[in-house]
Amino acid sequence: MSGGPSVRQRVLGWFHERPTATAWALLAPGGLFLLVFFVAPLVIMFGYSFMERGLYGGVEAGFTLEHYAAFFQPLYLTILLRTVVMAVSTTLICLALGYPVAYTIARAGRFKNALLFLVILPFWTSFLVRTFAMIFLMRDSGLINSLLVKAGLVEEGITMLYTPFAVMAGLVYGFLPFMILPIYSSLEKLDLTLLEAAEILGAPPRARFFRVVLPLSMPGVVAGSLLVFIPALGSFLSSDLLGGAKQILVGNLIQNQFTSARNWPFGSAASFVMMVLVVIAVGIYLRVRDADEAREA
């Protein structure tokens, strides 16, 4: 310790006495990156949604609400409504299919890890590849049709691809793991003695499920629903590849404005309508979560 503190000690000492500065030094690189390349673009986009349309894409200076007004015409409202209906039904179907799976995994004993792995695997797999897998199965000359014809169930292939059914199937297929995993993790934490307590108090299986298991897994259900609803709302790949041009969703509409239609302000406005829906969904999620945390505390 002779010769006074070293540079290293002095630097550490400086940061130690300024805990907030230390934290912000750690946060600065990532935080600034997010501000510049994530938040700022959203803010600029918000600004664009009030500007005049440029001739070849882009915008012209000015302030107008016409893009929002345009969005609320019947043509676009139909698209919005279709998108919301599609996202909500995807969420509900995922919930109906995913809950039993999560419940089974949570009590699968030594098969638990294997079953879980088989859910995580598609979760990590390219959405594009998985969408292609659906096309491969569902197209007119695809595997399902050829099997159906061979089995003599139908005379010629039934049309599956480019129907709302295909879009729906693609969305459910794509987002089902997002529903299963959060529900599983909340069911995993469930104290099994609670079920025994319910049983000894005379609750039949149905009551044990509806009065104990389901309420306690609500955080997982809500988190899973959010994780499915948001990407379903913003999806355009599924409707693009599986729905053909027939099933336009808000996602396709936005993409269109930035590619062929070159109406950036309108695309920005549509994006913000979508963001508003996302914020509402997140708000519901946070309310449920906070209520749940308050109950636990």
Binding site: F37, L42, I44, L233, F236
Partner: peptide, 15 residues
């Protein structure tokens, strides 16, 4: 985490 991918894509394009 909650922003739809398409919104991320176009807002960055704008930037």
């Amino acid at each position: 985490i909650v922003t739809p991918e398409i919104v991320v894509g176009i807002s960055l394009l704008i930037l």
